[in-house]
Amino acid sequence: MNYNFRFNALLPYTGEILRGVGLTLQLTLLTAVIGLAIGLFVALASSSERAALRVPARIYVEAIRNTPLLVQLFLVFFGLPSLGIRLDASVAAMVGLSINVGAYAGEILRAGFQSVRSSQVEAGRSLGLTAGQTFRHVVLFPAIKAIYPALASQFVLLLLATSVVSSIGAADLFHQAAFIDSRTYRSFESYALITLAYLILTLAFRALLSAIYWLVFVRRSRP
């Protein structure tokens, strides 16, 4: 092997990399929140007794979970304009990712709600809580505690999956790899560095998510 690795050729682009980190984190957090909101609706709809709510929710979840994110993004970014809906690359990225996460979060939340036994709900109602109060205090909090680990690893997967949006031209961390590559012609170094940057992001994100779990669930449940 007679290739000279020149990672220092990438040094002038530190600013671009940091900007990419910021964009990727923004995209991850925003789509996680929107996806969670979609997921909550989907979970409630798919455990509903009314078929008019349940069936569309199931179709949505199965359609999203059984097709690749990349094709979903292509449909949103390249497909929707022929229906007259023209979205900016970054908006299309957000819409596509949110729809994607919504389905996965919906499935996780549904499993969580089902893990709370119906006798618990009846107990809550017989204590005089309203349906809304029972849902909030008896179902939601324990359910979220039970599914938090699954949800957390879904969000870590989301952070990694955001790299795909670079393929429709949205600016994120992975997009910077292509940009730096085009400026320096150091393909391997650019992609290796950006890939390792994701590793640091994931490790930090995982640590943050565990810290939140500890703060919200472990400390609170202590007497």
Binding site: S163, S166, F174, A177, Y191, I194, T195, Y198
Partner: peptide
Amino acid sequence: GTPLLGQLFVFFF
């Protein structure tokens, strides 16, 4: 902890 897309490019190059 790294995106598959990144791994693909790293191996490809």
